[in-house]
Write a protein that binds this DNA or RNA. Structure first.
Length: 489
RNA sequence: GCCCCCAUCGUCUAGAGGCCUAGGACACAUCCCUUUCACGGAUGCAGCAGGGGUUCGAAUCCCCUUGGGGGUACCA
């Protein structure tokens, strides 16, 4: 808890569902703010100026997803705040006003070039083997020329003058000194489109200024944007925030994680549906490019916030590795309170008749299978035999195991000793089976497998004593009798 | 093409000149525990991209090469 007044933001654009990369960037901003404590604020802002691709469904997915991951913001489109609105499409007039200021101060100008003209310019540059960029041709239009274009009915875009050459430098909080030459920025940049809508780089700067953002932590795909945005801060003669660029997450082929190439696996919602724990996702994402000083692997959001610093964020790409995420998920499934895991498992058990068990029994059921789960969606299959009236025993198992004389002896003995089982007591039930084994002279597989198969429909699964204890007398009796009936003499 | 960023086991990383015969975790393999599957425990496998410097000493600093990634829009 060093200094207060840190104001950071996550600014997703609702052009797709919540991306794991966005989640990680949000996480680093969140941790940074929480680490500084005091009056520090984590802000959520929607960058929806791309009217073609933005959708309300995506907005909902992003907000829900981030909240599900437990990253709560202090200001945002849904909770408001002192610098509302937090949605760019609601600030279009404001951007317009701000752009006119830059024109008045001589930093920006109207550009009447049509897309066709620009295309032609590029074509020519390409043929001449020159770098493709805007040639600043509208920068010094005379009043007469302005009039002429206006009379032709052309509506102008607004461009920011970019002085060339000059070096733009900043000390990146993650990467250290970065410098970019203004000549490599592609010429005077458009800040407002000819349809009057502000462009990304401009809207971002205006918003970050409006919202008094102190630190900008984002993906390194924004490094050149930062150079452009720095020019805008200068034009506004405003204080410049600190910038930090996090290396991207890539796939096993080392390409940027994208919806196009990877489909749903880049979306947080995909993992949510599969039954991943938000705690595990956050832990995994945090640990991806940041390591705590003490090297621990498992930590909560709060614990991470205590010790999070940007100087421990990695400068190089990280491969998004699902097996590792799975390991984290398994850890949390095993160690979070059983009542919580049961709550989360319930949606995956809706196909079953849950009323046949009490809540404590349901917790026991989830408790005995959780050890083997990677994702919670697997709980459906893992617990099937607890709920279904009839257990399916395969042809083969039937032939090779169930219909042998030995198995029939074991099962008959279990049926005849039903009264001896202390239902509800796993250890007690187990010892009754052992007792039966002793009397029959069976042990190991010979003893356990027939019972296991009769009750679970398979020879591997959760602990046998627990299974008996939870199933209870009625279910055990009917399953044992069912199994005996499968191979009548 | 041009610009920028990056470079330690297959993967995530520790490492800020001697503590490194390079540590941990995931994955994988073997063993132990165990009626089974898992869990857990133990062990093993495996890495400083290459080449030059600087230095008594380099994974760590500098340069080059190579490789990888990102950016080059009136998208965000």
């Amino acid at each position: 808890m060093v200094s207060s007044n840190v104001r950071v933001r996550i600014a997703p654009s609702p052009t797709g569902n919540l991306h794991v990369g966005t989640a990680r960037t949000a996480l680093y901003n969140y941790l940074f703010a929480k680490h500084h404590g005091g009056d520090s604020k984590f802000i959520m802002r929607l960058e929806d100026t791309d009217e073609l691709r933005s959708k309300e469904d995506f907005t909902k997915d992003i907000i829900d997803g981030l909240k599900w991951l437990q990253m709560h913001w202090d200001e945002g489109p849904d909770v408001g705040g002192p610098f509302a609105p937090y949605r760019q499409t609601q600030k279009l007039d404001h951007y317009d006003k701000m752009s006119k200021k830059l024109i008045a101060s001589g930093h920006a100008y109207f550009c009447y070039c049509t897309p066709e003209e620009l295309e032609k310019l590029k074509e020519k540059q390409k043929n001449d083997n020159q770098a493709q960029r805007y040639d600043n041709r509208c920068r010094n239009l005379t009043d007469e020329e302005h009039k002429k274009f206006a009379e032709q009915g052309r509506s102008p875009a607004i461009r920011l003058k970019i002085e060339e050459p000059r070096v733009i430098t900043w000390n990146d909080m993650i990467k250290g000194d970065i410098s970019i030459d203004s000549s490599d920025l592609g010429g005077d940049m458009v800040i407002v489109k000819s349809n009057g809508i502000a462009l990304y780089n401009f809207a971002v700067v205006v918003d970050d200024l409006d919202m008094k953002i102190s630190h900008v932590i984002r993906g390194e795909d924004h490094i050149h944007n930062t150079a452009k945005q720095l020019l805008l801060y200068e034009a506004f003669n405003a204080d410049i925030p600190q910038f930090g660029h996090v290396a991207l997450m890539v796939d096993t082929d080392r390409h940027k994680l994208s919806k196009r190439a990877h489909g749903e696996m880049v979306h947080v919602d995909y993992y949510r549906r599969l039954g991943y724990m938000p705690e595990a996702i956050v832990n995994y994402l945090a640990h991806m490019s940041w390591t705590p000083p003490d090297g621990r692997e498992i930590f909560t959001l709060d614990e991470a916030a205590q010790i999070f610093t940007l100087d421990r964020v990695s400068t190089s790409h990280a491969v998004f590795d699902v097996p590792r995420l799975n390991w984290y998920n398994g850890q949390y499934i095993r160690n979070l309170p059983i009542s919580l895991i049961t709550d989360r498992a319930l949606p995956f058990l809706q196909a079953y008749d849950l009323a046949q068990y009490s809540r404590p029994q349901l917790e026991e059921i989830v408790g005995v299978v959780r050890e083997g789960l990677t994702t919670l969606s697997e709980v459906t299959e893992a617990t099937r035999f607890f709920f279904e009236r009839q257990v399916q025993i395969s042809e083969e198992l039937n032939r090779t195991l169930m219909c042998t004389d030995n198995s029939r002896k074991v099962l008959s003995a279990v049926r005849d000793n039903m009264a001896k089982f202390p239902w509800g007591d796993a250890k007690g039930c187990k010892s009754v089976i052992d007792q039966i084994g002793k009397e029959l002279g069976f042990k190991g597989k010979d003893l356990y497998w027939p019972v296991r198969a009769a009750l679970q429909g398979k020879t591997s699964g959760p602990d046998l004593g627990s299974t008996l204890a939870i199933l209870g007398e009625a279910r055990v009796r009917s399953r044992i009798e069912g199994a005996l009936g499968l191979c009548p003499r």
